[in-house]
């Protein structure tokens, strides 16, 4: 291993050393170009980030300052206490635990179930596999709102209203996009690997568990992040199915700041930022997989 790296390093050095003189000229040109690039990208980023800044600044203002006109760009008085007040305004501890519970279950369900289904579509030949897969894919074309009411009726007939079942159980039945994404990944694993394991005596379940799961880790990370994001930020689901305040999630909890008459913008923004924080942290750690998933979605890869 080390030898290989050494050799590569040496090669690179030689390449640099043997670069012709006119490269100097190109070098300065490149620097200029990259500077322009940087400025443009920075400007774009600032533009995109401006709503976030608006959230942060609002969350630190007093209600009076929020209402002033013209609006202030940054708070005159930094009310860090807003965050504590926000958290205490409602049983946010309970909401956080509820949200974490739901999200974890959804993530576990999505990762395991979709992976298992995708393994079947990719590696287990059976009659009608192609057609079945096409049907699964076609469900991606159905807008979620079309199934909203039938789903509500179904869950209410099951007496699942005001429980977490409607929010969690569907994750254990697979989702077309995740199945598609994981299947694509499984297709890159050579069949011989599966066949070798079969001959060694492993069942399909065992092969999936000991070979499929570890080899599809990057794709599983993508699924985990997407499903985390979906469950964490879900507002409509909890709104529809949860009545009992003890069962509320963070997203529902934020509604306390939106009164009939007026909205407490500073607290709402502080709450939103707190709720957003885990998602942002997660994104920073797993950026790579996020982008991978988006690439696949748009057929970029």
């Amino acid at each position: 291993m080390e030898e290989v790296e050494m050799a590569a390093k040496k090669r690179d050095e030689e390449r640099v050393a043997s670069a012709p003189a006119y490269f100097d000229n190109i070098h300065t040109k490149r620097k200029l170009l990259s500077l322009i690039n940087f400025i443009l990208l920075a400007a774009g980023s600032l533009l995109i980030l401006s709503p976030i800044w608006w959230m942060i600044s609002t969350s630190l203002k007093s209600m009076a300052e929020v209402m002033t006109y013209p609006p202030t760009f940054y708070p005159h008085e930094w009310n860090w206490g807003n965050y504590i007040k926000t958290w205490k305004a409602a049983p946010f501890d309970t909401y956080a635990i509820n949200t974490i519970t739901i999200t974890m279950l959804v993530v576990i369900g999505s990762v395991l179930v979709n992976s298992f289904i995708a393994y079947g579509f990719a590696k287990v030949p059976f009659k009608g596999r192609g057609i079945l897969f096409a049907i699964v894919l076609s469900t991606m074309m159905i807008p979620g709102f079309v199934t909203l009411i039938p789903q509500y009726v179904l869950f209410s007939k099951l007496q699942w209203i005001n429980t977490y079942y409607p929010l969690v159980v569907p994750a254990f039945f697979g989702s077309a996009f995740f199945i598609f994404l994981l299947r694509q990944f499984y297709m890159t694993i050579p069949n011989e690997l599966i066949e070798a394991a079969k001959i060694e005596g492993a069942s399909h379940f065992r092969i999936w568990w000991t070979i499929g799961l570890p080899l599809t880790k990057p794709a599983l990370a993508t699924v985990a992040i997407f499903s985390f994001n979906g469950a964490w930020n879900d507002f409509l689901g909890p709104l529809l199915y949860l009545n009992d305040e003890n069962l509320y999630t963070l997203q529902l909890g934020l509604q306390v700041f939106k009164g009939e008459m007026n909205t407490q913008w500073n607290y709402l923004m502080a709450g939103s930022l707190l709720v957003l924080l885990p998602v942002i942290i997660l994104f920073f750690f797993f950026q790579k997989y996020f982008i991978q998933g988006i690439n696949l979605q748009s057929g970029g890869k």
């Binding site: 690997l193 070798a196 570890p214």
Partner: peptide, 30 residues
């Protein structure tokens, strides 16, 4: 009879080693 019950061992052209397992684990798998 399914492959797992035939008590057969097979070597593939491209080796088909499990990339995430060590040599020991590859050999111990069966």
């Amino acid at each position: 009879v399914p492959p797992k019950s035939r008590d057969i061992a097979m070597v593939f052209q491209n080796y088909a080693l499990y990339p995430h397992m060590t040599v020991f684990d590859n050999m111990a798998f069966g």
